[in-house]
């Protein structure tokens, strides 16, 4: 059974691509066959985050147009052998993605017995975002604890409930999860940032992960190594937990509180 998961948010810059890359790595690390697809046509980025930008020969639109086979376009990850990347095209043609074309690619990946297809959605609610979510079985809605991101996520939830293949065909709808990123426990404690509980209450969804704000995320994208692969990082551990929950494992949320600091650290630390 292939499961199609869209990583979406509405608002840009909240961590969709970071999340797609880490979730895909996390699933592959557990032996699942994973394909991660960049739907941000015109603004290719997933390849950079995955660190395979120099190996892109063919892209998603090439496959749809029949310029190459799917096998030729899939880039096999050098770290995890069951992980494959399909890069976005850099064409400026807005109509390069078609529902029929996307369906064909997803069907072929399903026939190839991939366990998971992760669709990395572009920001906004235009065609790319629509097609990224259209065939999804599940959605991971990435949200920052910040007003515009939460509102945009709710808009996306509305679209997931009405403009998807599952919603249109009465297949029980798309299963939705929230994933909070850039979570800063200290600011939450100070009342400067909404808490997981607040966001959960407003949007009324279960939380599949809370990723603490961490300098490791930028370092990971600088290096082209998805942050989940950084063994020492809290953000990596939090993504690892999110993957576990995606696989149905029970695991309590971590990193919701500021680590206790010693007396000297509090006196002299920043």
């Amino acid at each position: 059974m292939t499961e199609i998961i869209v990583v979406t948010s509405g608002k840009g810059g909240v961590g969709k691509t970071t999340t797609s890359a880490s979730m895909a790595c996390g699933l592959a690390r557990r032996g699942k066959r994973v394909a991660v697809i960049d739907f941000d046509i015109g603004l290719r980025n997933l390849d950079l985050i995955m660190g395979c930008e120099r190996r892109v020969v063919y892209d998603f639109v090439n496959v749809i147009n029949g310029d190459c086979t799917l096998k030729q376009a899939l880039i096999r990850d050098k770290r995890l052998e069951t992980l494959h990347v399909l890069a976005a095209s850099q064409t400026r043609d807005k109509d390069a993605l078609t529902e029929e074309g996307v369906r064909r690619v997803l069907d072929e990946l399903t026939a190839e017995q991939f366990d998971y297809i992760i669709c990395d959605s572009p920001a906004g609610i235009e065609k790319g975002a629509h097609l990224a979510m259209y065939f999804a079985d599940r959605a991971v809605v990435v949200v920052n604890p910040e007003v515009s991101s939460v509102r945009d996520s709710d808009r996306i939830l509305g679209l997931l409930a009405s403009k998807t293949h599952r919603s249109a065909n009465g297949n029980g709808g798309v299963k939705e999860h929230l994933l909070l990123t850039r979570y800063n426990p200290r600011r939450v404690a100070n009342g400067e940032m909404m808490s997981v509980g607040d966001v959960k209450e407003i949007l009324g969804l279960d939380v599949i992960g809370v990723i603490p704000e961490s300098p490791d995320v930028l370092a990971a994208s600088n290096a082209g190594v998805p942050v989940i692969l950084n063994e020492e990082s809290d953000a990596a551990a939090a993504y690892g937990d999110a993957v576990a929950r995606l696989l149905g494992e029970e695991c309590p949320l971590r990193f919701l509180e500021e680590p206790k600091r010693g007396f000297f650290a509090r006196m002299f630390g920043g």
Partner: peptide, 16 residues
């Protein structure tokens, strides 16, 4: 400010 954010969102989300 977090509780103000929450209250504003609660209202606008319900309305939308």
């Amino acid at each position: 400010s977090a509780s103000i954010a929450k209250e504003r969102l609660r209202i606008i989300v319900a309305q939308e």
